Simulated scan of single mutants.
Amino acid sequence: MKKALSIFLLFTILVLSACSNTTIQQKSEKDGNEPTETELSWLEILEVNSQENYSAQNFFETYSQYIDQFTSTKAKNMANEMYNKVVQHLITSKDHKRLYFLYTEGFINHKEVLSKDLVKNVNQIVADVKKEEDAKKEKIKSILSIIDNGNFDSLHSYTDDTLEKETLDSLLSYGYAIEELQKNGETNHFFDLLLSINPMYQGEKNKEIAAFVTKYVALDEWKEKYIVRVNNKIMNQEYKADQVKNIPLEIGMSKQEVIHSAWGKPRQIKIFPTEQGVSEQWVYSDIKHLTFDNNELTGWQE
């Protein structure tokens, strides 16, 4: 009897121990997988920063700040999904230069959490943009070489649509300023050329260019007057655009002139052959239309 009781007690202890271990294991798994309140708050911050209208750089910085502090597997997975989402958005929005910058500057430094397809796409984009950037650097070196050699005739005929306009304009103005200084000295035109150079230019020989400009113009004055020039240029462009929109219709106008007038492009074009050639009716609404005969405006109704 005692032996049977001992066996029963031993069996009971083993069962209770097993149940206890299972409960502890389940609790441990739950604790390891479910995000804590703090982790949920971190995930909320990441979610906000992952939105399309927020800075991707902010997201990657925040991710790097929190990711190693997560203890919950579920929280880490959620953060990693957001990481993939932000990178995917940079790719689908074709913001390749931004992606290249974030990658080369070390902001995208957790490639291990990206899907294989994203890693492949990122590597390809980075390689393509690097190739473009290297080509631009070579072109900039070529322009500076022309300037250094004093080959100003080549400089005046230089054109390139792959370089950023501000970069190209700054380099050309730098070369033209050197030419003007050598030929005519410190003229008003020389100073105008200096002030056409972007003080924020950070490309090849940027320190040398800045030293050249500040030899004749104080840095603060350079920055201030450059901003004024840019703002005036923008205002002038806006003014011209407004002036174009306010051009009234006149008999004899060409189609292009009408398009650039307040009427703009039509909703529909109807073409009618005539004895004199071709007549076109440009329809803007049920009652608003104009007529071209042989490509010249001959009348309108509004």
Rank of each mutant, 00 (worst) to 15 (best):
N33W: 10
L14T: 10
I259K: 12
Y100E: 05
I259G: 12
G252M: 14
C19Q: 10
L155F: 12
L16K: 01
Q57I: 02
K270T: 06
L168P: 06
E224P: 15
S170W: 02
K223F: 12
G32R: 06
Q276W: 05
V87S: 04
M1R: 02
I91L: 13
L194V: 13
Y216V: 11
N231H: 04
N294C: 09
N21M: 09
E179W: 04
K139C: 07
D134R: 10
E47Y: 14
L40C: 15
G185D: 12
S115P: 03
E302M: 14
C19T: 08
V122Q: 01
Y103V: 00
N149E: 13
V244P: 00
L163D: 04
Y63W: 05
E208G: 11
V48H: 12
L118V: 08
T62I: 06
N151R: 07
K183H: 06
E186S: 14
K137V: 08
V119N: 15
I143G: 03
T73V: 11
V213R: 00
M253W: 01
V230N: 04
G203M: 04
H156C: 08
D242H: 06
N109E: 14
T104P: 00
Q256R: 14
M82Q: 05
R267F: 08
N236G: 10
E179T: 04
T187F: 05
N294G: 15
Y226V: 09
Q202Y: 12
L193I: 09
K205S: 12
I234D: 02
S28D: 08
K183E: 13
Q256W: 07
M253T: 02
H89E: 05
M1V: 07
G252I: 05
D134M: 13
G32D: 14
I178W: 00
S20R: 07
K76W: 02
Y103M: 03
P266G: 06
E37S: 15
E138I: 08
W263T: 03
E257D: 13
L99G: 09
E52F: 07
S279C: 11
A127H: 09
N109S: 15
L16D: 05
V283M: 10
Y176Q: 04
I251F: 15
N77C: 03
D95Q: 08
Y239S: 10
K139R: 10
E164Q: 15
E105I: 01
G106C: 09
E112H: 14
L194E: 03
L219D: 15
V244A: 08
D134Q: 15
P199W: 00
P35Q: 03
L43A: 11
E37I: 12
K233T: 03
N109W: 11
S64E: 02
K288Y: 05
